[in-house]
């Protein structure tokens, strides 16, 4: 094969297509890239610092007694925050019991019955606005509804406050999971004579189960870290309690109270409790996101 062009002389004037390394465009491009790259590091720095500092301060104080003992009276040392872990589990349990069936059934309406309807539009809109309602206002709501009515602070009131926060998260995430199930699968079930109820409960829900589990887990991770809605609903308790209708200690509230009092032993406990809380929340968030990535369809 011969080259017919034999590097013929260019007929037209040669041209300069280079850009100087010092042109204003080059300088602008390079500096913007450097600045945004620096911003990225800046955003990551607090995450690294918080995890590192909480581990450094919390680890030395963390031991078996952290989970089994009560905090010491002011002035004394040692002790733990076992009652707050139990209290957190109880309030979260109450919140999950309210928000999960509620949120999932609403999600089923949105994905299975109400697609494109005006009702669905407004429900979705309300859920998005509800997501933006500050956590402390969920606390005020539960105070006004439960505490003021029943006359005392309680784990139950705290659970109601957390349920308000979890509800829109459960619904929207579960809805997204249900939407991912291809429409053909529903048609196939209906096409061989299954009713809507059978199609949803036996085909769609099982297929969307990982997504729904993710939805509940993400909502739990969010609620587990909230102190604001519990301050005047579950309040606090310095002793062991499993009574749903009595004040109860929770990890976030305990951290708050121990962080702002001037006793070294309590502050150390706050760091250890923060380590436990941060560890649980981060691990749950990571696992939930990893599960969410495994798509069935």
């Amino acid at each position: 094969m011969t080259t017919p062009l034999n590097d013929a002389l260019p007929a037209v004037e040669p041209i300069d297509l280079t850009r100087s390394k010092t042109s204003s465009k080059t300088i602008m491009s390079v500096s913007l890239t450097v600045i945004t790259g620096f911003f990225t590091l800046l955003v990551l720095a607090p995450l690294v610092a918080v995890v590192f500092d909480v581990a450094r301060e919390g680890l030395p104080r963390l031991g078996l007694e952290s989970f089994t003992e009560l905090p010491p009276p002011p002035g004394l040392t040692d002790g733990g925050f076992g009652h707050a872990i139990v209290g957190s589990l109880i309030t979260l349990g109450i919140a999950t019991a309210f928000s999960t069936p509620f949120g999932i059934l609403a999600a089923i309406y949105l994905s299975e019955f109400g697609r494109g309807s005006r009702v669905a539009y407004w429900v979705r809109f309300s859920a998005n606005v509800l997501t933006g309602v500050p956590a402390i206002l969920a606390g005020l709501f539960a105070y006004s509804l439960v505490v003021a009515t029943m006359g005392n602070f309680s784990a139950f009131a705290g659970g109601v406050a957390l349920a308000v926060l979890m509800l829109p998260i459960v619904m929207r995430t579960a809805e997204e999971g249900l939407m991912l199930i291809p429409h053909e699968v529903r048609l196939a079930a209906l096409g061989i004579g299954a009713t809507r109820f059978q199609t949803i409960t036996q085909i769609v829900l099982p297929a969307a189960l990982p997504a729904i589990a993710t939805a509940v887990t993400l909502a739990l991770a969010r609620a587990a870290g909230e102190a604001a809605p519990l301050l005047f609903t579950a309040l606090n308790n310095n002793f062991w309690s499993t009574d749903a209708f009595a004040p109860i200690a929770t990890l976030p509230v305990l951290i708050y109270f121990f962080a702002i009092i001037p006793f070294r032993a309590q502050q150390e406990l706050a760091w250890a409790a923060a380590l436990v809380l941060l560890g649980i929340v981060l691990i749950v968030s990571i696992v939930a996101r990893l599960i969410a990535r495994q798509k069935k369809y």
Binding site: G225, P252, I260, L278
Partner: peptide
């Protein structure tokens, strides 16, 4: 992984961030 880490910042409980704010 950077995007993933940034998403995790949202998960830090605000009371933990407050504690870190006071002492660090």
């Amino acid at each position: 992984p950077i995007s993933f880490a940034i998403e995790l910042i949202v998960a830090i409980p605000s009371v933990v961030l407050g504690l870190w704010g006071i002492f660090v």
